[in-house]
Simulated scan of single mutants.
Amino acid sequence: MATLQLVSQGAEGRLFETTFLGKPCLKKERFKKAYRHPVLDEKLTNKRLTQECRSLSKCRSLGIRTPTVYYVDHKTNTIYMEYMKHTVVLKDFIDEHVARGERTILEDLCYNVGYTIGLLHNGDIIHGDLTTSNILVMKRIDKYDCVMIDFGLSINSSLVEDKGVDLYVLEKAFLSTHPNSQDLFDKILAGYCSVARAQKAVVTKLREVRLRGRKRSMVG
């Protein structure tokens, strides 16, 4: 039996480093929520597991880099997927390069991140939890590519509202995690607008969602 090494634990599950058929892999295990009715919990967990796998598969068909899914165990709500070792979490990559004052690399990478999210939305995939902790950075020969991960809250939707909210979630997380980096988020939007088919409508919706968010903050 392969040994398990805990990599991380979030609200939805645990991530272990292990092997699958001799290959290094990550085992993503969703755990039960005691506060939910057992039947409802099982249905919801299974639905999210299925949707995550579908989103990962669809991403690859759209040319978006994601971990390959090796095996899905619906009985234990577990996904075995490719372990992309030669990557860095985008959050750490930004922090490191901001500290060095290397903005050009970050501007190019953030443009690429926005471009990739535009491809996601062209395929009507709403990530649901866009943060700089859910994007990996992979170095190529002459550039950096991004790898999209953690589609546990993803949905399929063609609605402009859902796409605008997806960007708003990223913007809030981005500016909260990386203060004084509005210029970098602007690069993300530029990359998004370069490829997203409904970019004008989505950016307009993003502005509307921002206003709603500010009003809620003011009301408390």
Score class of each variant (00 low, 15 high):
160 V>I: 14
143 K>M: 12
182 Q>P: 05
175 L>R: 02
142 D>Q: 09
144 Y>P: 00
197 R>A: 12
149 I>N: 04
181 S>V: 00
153 L>Y: 05
146 C>S: 05
162 D>V: 07
159 L>Q: 12
164 G>K: 10
171 E>R: 12
141 I>T: 15
162 D>L: 06
137 V>D: 06
151 F>H: 10
182 Q>L: 13
203 V>G: 03
191 G>I: 02
183 D>E: 10
201 A>N: 12
154 S>H: 04
207 R>Q: 15
173 A>I: 04
146 C>R: 01
185 F>G: 12
199 Q>M: 05
155 I>D: 09
178 H>W: 04
152 G>S: 07
143 K>D: 08
153 L>K: 04
182 Q>H: 10
189 L>N: 05
153 L>M: 09
151 F>V: 07
183 D>R: 10
183 D>G: 03
163 K>N: 10
165 V>A: 13
167 L>R: 10
174 F>I: 03
197 R>S: 12
155 I>G: 03
202 V>P: 01
140 R>Q: 15
207 R>S: 15
144 Y>D: 10
156 N>T: 14
183 D>Q: 09
201 A>W: 02
202 V>L: 06
188 I>T: 09
180 N>I: 00
142 D>G: 03
201 A>F: 02
166 D>G: 11
199 Q>S: 15
141 I>H: 13
185 F>C: 11
203 V>D: 08
201 A>S: 12
201 A>I: 01
137 V>R: 04
192 Y>E: 12
185 F>N: 07
142 D>I: 03
184 L>G: 05
181 S>G: 12
156 N>M: 13
190 A>H: 08
191 G>T: 02
155 I>F: 09
157 S>C: 06
145 D>Q: 04
208 E>N: 09
187 K>M: 14
189 L>D: 04
175 L>K: 04
144 Y>V: 03
148 M>S: 01
148 M>V: 15
142 D>H: 06
187 K>V: 04
190 A>I: 02
197 R>K: 14
162 D>G: 03
198 A>V: 09
167 L>S: 09
147 V>Y: 01
180 N>V: 02
192 Y>I: 09
150 D>R: 07
188 I>A: 08
191 G>Y: 04
151 F>W: 05
200 K>H: 14
143 K>I: 04
148 M>D: 00
149 I>W: 00
139 K>L: 11
169 V>T: 11
144 Y>H: 11
137 V>F: 07
154 S>I: 00
170 L>Y: 02
199 Q>K: 13
198 A>P: 00
194 S>Y: 01
200 K>S: 13
196 A>Y: 01
207 R>A: 15
188 I>Q: 08
208 E>M: 08
171 E>K: 14
204 T>Y: 13
174 F>L: 07
199 Q>F: 13
183 D>N: 10
190 A>P: 00
179 P>N: 13
191 G>K: 05
160 V>G: 03
170 L>C: 06
148 M>R: 05
139 K>W: 05
173 A>Y: 01
188 I>P: 14
175 L>Y: 00
198 A>C: 13
202 V>R: 03
205 K>Q: 14
140 R>Y: 08
195 V>Y: 13
165 V>C: 11
187 K>R: 14
195 V>R: 12
205 K>Y: 01
155 I>L: 11
140 R>P: 00
198 A>Y: 15
205 K>W: 00
